[in-house]
Write a protein that binds this DNA or RNA. Structure first.
Lengths: 219, 219
DNA sequence: CCTACCGATCGGTAGG
DNA sequence: CCTACCGATCGGTAGG
């Protein structure tokens, strides 16, 4: 029995490749718009127009606007996780892993077409509470990638200003992660790419960041 | 010629103390609501209700909703500036000035009734572009307070992981400020006070932050 | 500052 | 996925 050719069942988006593509297009366009104007200030009509649909059609792919936000955040966490794992895999030393984490996070936050995590950071409050748990669970796995490397750094006395490796506590690792990731994530509020020629690019920004946080060996 | 007792001229809010009070009440209530739900998700009706007014009455004090947002941000910058200057005045050493900056900023961000700067950080995008210039000018003076102390710290080799005091460049100070303030400001996204008893209070958070960023003398 | 209201917009739906 | 639409809400105003 051949599968019907007309896409009439939105039950499982993965079933029909065309439908999955349209769904992905909606997620990408939404991420861009949310990042630019914010979730609340972005209209379903804006989203529809961005992918060449009419105003009611996004609801064929998503139950409501909040589901779109959730999908954007999930996409961001999955992409971010994958990119981070891939970057870590290529790094051999602790220092290299740290560099990889920093540089990758900047890419995740500022690369063109990579607006998902910025949306998560900006519009977390707009996510319905019943979705938060689910997102947090994925985010925890993400944070764990950092926690491990930062813990190694602390124990080797390579991170921060003057933490004594001997008495590095668990809470120190957590604080270190919150400070380092906070500093990096906060760049979503001020860093603009491709504006001026003298503008720091992401490589330079990552270098400066690593230099600020990481102790050099000969110190 | 005696001044009319009935408040009928909203031209200069400072003229009538009652009017100025109501205006302040609106700003404070708006800050709390914006901080909680975001600017877009907060209704003028919400704001009015929070101070016991009817839905149209806030427009007696403000031209429109955006003016309220601007007023909230201005209030935050002025309060923040004053608190920071006062805190710095009491500090004698560079280290003490750094501690003062960090602890004060945490208070500015998380004290009850001090939601203004958090709103500025969260809802910057919602501010009409024509107001941004004005706010940025005040913010620059604010940042300058940090820049000076952080510059001294860098030159004394007291800040960050391994910056060589001999070759500290101007851009290093700026990066240092962006990293330190970024880490602190980003706490608006995760730090919650008074939830659990084991929850770090602001003093502990400030201590951890200082310990992470500042080099101790005997290092 | 209230009453009474309006025009516009927005998320969402029915029915094909 | 489109057409056609609706109910609700929202920022803002007139007139006192």
């Amino acid at each position: 029995m051949p599968v019907s050719k007309s896409p009439k069942s939105p039950k499982s988006p993965q079933d029909n490749p065309d439908e999955a593509n349209r769904r992905q297009a909606l997620i990408r366009a939404s991420a861009r718009l949310f990042r630019e104007k914010g979730y609340d200030a972005t209209t379903v009509r804006d989203i529809a127009a961005a992918v060449g649909m009419r105003s009611g059609s996004p609801f064929y792919h998503f139950k409501n606007k909040q589901e779109i936000l959730k999908a954007v955040m999930e996409e961001g966490l999955h992409q971010g996780f994958d990119r981070t794992v891939a970057a870590l895999a290529k790094a051999t030393t602790v220092q290299a892993r740290f560099r990889a984490l920093v540089r990758t996070q900047y890419g995740i936050l500022h690369d063109e077409g990579s607006e998902f995590i910025a949306v998560l950071l900006y519009d977390w409050r707009s996510l319905p509470p019943e979705y938060m748990q689910e997102i947090i669970r994925v985010k925890d796995r993400y944070d764990a990638l950092w926690q491990e490397t930062l813990g190694d750094m602390l124990q080797a006395g390579l991170l921060g200003a003057h933490v004594d490796p001997q008495q590095a506590a668990v809470s120190d690792v957590k604080i270190a992660r919150l400070m380092v990731m906070g500093a990096i994530n906060f760049t979503v509020t001020w860093y603009k790419q491709k504006t001026q020629p003298e503008q720091m690019d992401l490589d330079a920004l990552a270098d400066s960041t690593v230099r600020f946080f990481m102790r050099s060996s000969q110190n």
